[in-house]
């Protein structure tokens, strides 16, 4: 029986070496592959938050006639939101999974 157990253990080790054994908790890979993928993800997050911030500021200014003050305010808020997005991208899950 012990021979059998030894075999199971060796088989498991061999499978792990060959990359066949999946780890119990598969890591959530929402970040792309390689440095380019990660950089691209982070860039998209910043730009999209900035675009939304600028759009809101521009629309509010257009509506209220306060150009350019709300635009500037929401530009800054959009940048902050973009940085929050990137922070959530790399924050390990468990707390609040953001993006």
């Amino acid at each position: 029986m012990s021979e059998q157990d030894g075999f199971t253990e060796r088989l498991r080790q061999a499978r792990t070496r060959q990359g066949l054994e999946q780890s119990k908790e598969p890591a959530v890979k929402t970040v792309g592959t390689g440095p380019w993928g990660i950089g691209f993800r982070a860039g998209v997050e910043v730009v999209s938050a900035l675009v939304v911030g600028i759009a809101i500021g521009y629309a509010l200014d257009h509506w209220l006639g306060t150009w350019p003050w709300l635009f500037l305010l929401f530009f800054v808020a959009g940048s902050a939101a973009g940085i929050m997005n990137v922070y959530r991208l790399f924050k390990p899950r468990g707390g609040r999974p953001g993006i």
Binding site: F40, R41, V44, E45, V47, S48, A49, V51, V52, G53, I56, F74, A77, G78, A80, A81, G82, M84, N85, G98, I99
Partner: peptide, 17 residues
């Protein structure tokens, strides 16, 4: 406001990516 912008940026980043 920052959280709302962050929330609204989700579809933009999803689409643009």
């Amino acid at each position: 406001p920052i959280e709302i912008i962050s929330y609204l940026s989700r579809p933009v980043s999803l689409a643009v990516r």
